[in-house]
Design a protein around this nucleic acid. Sequence first.
RNA 1: GCGCCAGUAGCUCAAUGGAUAGAGCGUUGGUCUACGAAACCAAAGGCUGAAGGUUCGAAUCCUUCCUGGCGCACCA
Length: 577
Amino acid sequence: MIRIPLDLAQRLEQAVRDAQQAGDLPLFDIPPLKVTHAPKPEHGDYATPAAMQLAKPARLKPEEIVKALISHFPSTDYVESVEGVGGFVNFRLSDAWLQRQVDAIIAAGDDFGRMDDFAGQRAQVECVSANPTGPISVHRIRGGVIGDTLARLLRSMGYTVDMEYYYNDAGRQMDILGQSLRARYLERLGLPVEFPAEGYQGHYIYDLADELIAAQGNALIEEEDIKPFKDFACARISEMQKASLARVGILFDNYFSEQSVYANGAVWQVLDQLREKGLVYEALHPEKDEDADERPDAEDLEAVASGSATWLRSRQLRGAQKDCALVKSSGEPTYRLPDIAYHVSKLDRGYDPAVNILGADHIEQFKDVKAAAGALGYDAERIQVVIHQFVTLVNSEGERESGSTKKGVFVALDDLVDDVGMDAVRYFMLARSADSRIDFDIDLARKKSNENPVYYIQNAHVRCASIARVAAERGVSMEDADVHLLTDPRELALIRKLIELPEIVEQAVRDLAPHKLAFWAHEELARLFHPTYEDIRALHSDVPVELAGSRLKLYAAAKIVLARTLSLMGMSAPEQM
RNA sequence: GCGCCAGUAGCUCAAUGGAUAGAGCGUUGGUCUACGAAACCAAAGGCUGAAGGUUCGAAUCCUUCCUGGCGCACCA
């Protein structure tokens, strides 16, 4: 399936070269030429401001360049006319070609919109990567949906994609988790305990304690080691997280354990390599710039009594404000060192790109990781990141609910899925640019009406399925229908929209911006579909039987595109409501 | 104080440096003896937070300010 903007850009470049050869344009280096959708129907379907781009290098007026471009433009079956208007060159698609695309889409079926640009290349998407300390929160799931959708999009452009979950099963938080479980365990057994000050207060810890009692009884009462509690909690919570994520269609190919970069020594190897590059030093406090203008209380938050820590020269490495700790004075690494080792592992495993989906609060950490990988001699550009802003749940009164895992006050993913369903969770998490905060309107997500984009999009698919059923009941076949009967401007407009899918996929992948697909699905595809379907009746008694068949084909093609679009977003495509 | 992100219609948001900035919701007014009204049509609604700059052309790039979110741990 042809991607028109791409193909037009190539043909334009050819036109420039031919014009140069013919002496109609002077010689100059040809920059990448832009092709856009025309803003208005009277301007045709696609347009290029190439003449204005080239005016400077060619030292000619745009109008003259337009003439040269038009006269040298290589003809092609899908372009009906090429016109110059002002400094723009406008392209109009051929009706006959558009009509044939209906058959082409039906022939492609589920493969419509699949491209092979990156065939044979391996990409990775890391997302969610929550600590196994509690239920998956709504904040985390935004990253999960963005990542999973991105993985689907990358696959549809030919990449082989691994979805990976980085699993922090080491470090202090896990100890706190173990202590929390032990406290609840003892409490359930009627023993007086003091709950750890920073412990996890959520009710699920009681549930785990009950499970542990069911499994082991009071055998662990005298247990001094925190490990049995830690391991039990970690394993059970991980299972619960996995199950929650599966409910919204997010499945991982690989769970990467933080412990593994300790076990294989990668953590210390990375530290040694950074030390060899002179990027690490030992000191009681981080070194500071002479004119450092810092919050006075920042470094004294935790008074350090126990000796030197090991610091990464983040300021030197990437112009950061502060150097960051890699190894605590206790000799235990901070999370940042294993994180660097982990990303080095991604690069060693050959992923290009390795995309990391992170919440806005992790941006500084990521910069260190990327810079460190670069300093170690890797092409750090292979590591890509999508930073997303936070999600706030809003109810009908506009009240906000948010929470923290520590306090045990949150809306967990499971609760949200129970409430609004998987499709709505995915759609609303996806529909906005990662850069903007989301107010997740629970009441809107619950609605089963046109106000709710989820239903609006899915209902378009339902209508396509419905008409196919009715046609079958009435014995109307589209088997030998002639697509060239689809001459109504509204029919042609719908075909134009259907064939945009590959372009949208390409843009979403190029910009690592899966919201572009969600936006298109609602505001472009479904928005155009419904009025068309309303007006363009296939099975009405006034419609000649030949035309009925053609229109059934149009809706069969629309069904394929809608199903494919929903599938890329990880949403279901119901046959009936 | 410093850094990152955002500020576009009443609300929620789109918009590769390109033509007169677009949708949805809401509002107002219309459409049901037709494949699902869980739908459709129409109207009103904007100095793109402010001011400068770069450019043939700026919501988009640069500078400075204002407002909001998130960071600025030997937590993850």
